[in-house]
Amino acid sequence: MKLVSTLFISALVVFVAGCTQEQQNKISRSVQNWTGTNGVLEFYAGDKLVRRFIKIDKITTGMGTDDNKPRSYRYGYGVLDENFNLIADPGEKKVYFEISDYGSNYIFFENPR
């Protein structure tokens, strides 16, 4: 049993090492999407925080329907943190959001709490 585990892990390491950086990133994102994250997305107008979404599992790049090419926006679901306290308070709901690549000032990070 120990030999089988060692061989499996060795094969996995060889497989990942043989992948391009983009393939490794895709594998990492799929594992992260499966395990989930506790992301925070903040939007700024100059130096002022104007909108915050918390409890984001993932942000997805929009893809074209016919050509399957990436679009210039990303989207996801998160709780709108209306009072900016990084906590999903009663009454704060999970909502859909979109982020344009054109002129958006935003930061995405893992919630430290």
Results as ranks from 00 to 15, higher is better:
residue 100 S to M: 10
residue 55 K to S: 01
residue 20 T to I: 14
residue 18 G to S: 12
residue 63 M to W: 14
residue 81 D to I: 04
residue 97 F to G: 00
residue 108 F to L: 13
residue 47 D to N: 13
residue 112 P to S: 07
residue 62 G to V: 01
residue 74 R to S: 14
residue 109 F to N: 06
residue 52 R to A: 07
residue 78 G to I: 15
residue 35 T to H: 02
residue 21 Q to W: 14
residue 45 A to P: 00
residue 45 A to I: 03
residue 102 Y to L: 11
residue 79 V to P: 08
residue 42 E to W: 00
residue 95 V to W: 03
residue 25 N to Y: 07
residue 33 N to H: 12
residue 11 A to P: 04
residue 3 L to H: 10
residue 51 R to E: 07
residue 69 K to V: 15
residue 85 N to S: 07
residue 26 K to N: 07
residue 47 D to M: 12
residue 40 V to L: 04
residue 92 E to W: 04
residue 18 G to Q: 05
residue 51 R to L: 08
residue 46 G to A: 15
residue 53 F to H: 09
residue 5 S to P: 05
residue 92 E to T: 00
residue 69 K to T: 12
residue 30 S to Y: 04
residue 41 L to E: 02
residue 56 I to M: 09
residue 15 F to D: 14
residue 91 G to Q: 00
residue 70 P to G: 04
residue 10 S to H: 08
residue 59 I to M: 01
residue 41 L to K: 00
residue 25 N to S: 13
residue 90 P to A: 02
residue 47 D to W: 09
residue 97 F to Q: 03
residue 24 Q to A: 08
residue 30 S to K: 09
residue 106 Y to V: 07
residue 62 G to F: 00
residue 32 Q to C: 05
residue 101 D to I: 05
residue 9 I to W: 13
residue 19 C to P: 03
residue 63 M to P: 05
residue 28 S to R: 15
residue 91 G to A: 03
residue 3 L to F: 07
residue 42 E to A: 00
residue 87 I to F: 14
residue 57 D to E: 06
residue 37 T to Q: 02
residue 42 E to P: 00
residue 1 M to P: 06
residue 110 E to F: 07
residue 35 T to P: 00
residue 99 I to N: 06
residue 87 I to R: 09
residue 14 V to C: 12
residue 72 S to T: 05
residue 88 A to F: 06
residue 19 C to G: 01
residue 77 Y to K: 05
residue 75 Y to H: 02
residue 46 G to I: 13
residue 70 P to N: 04
residue 3 L to T: 10
residue 88 A to R: 11
residue 26 K to E: 09
residue 98 E to N: 01
residue 74 R to Q: 11
residue 75 Y to N: 04
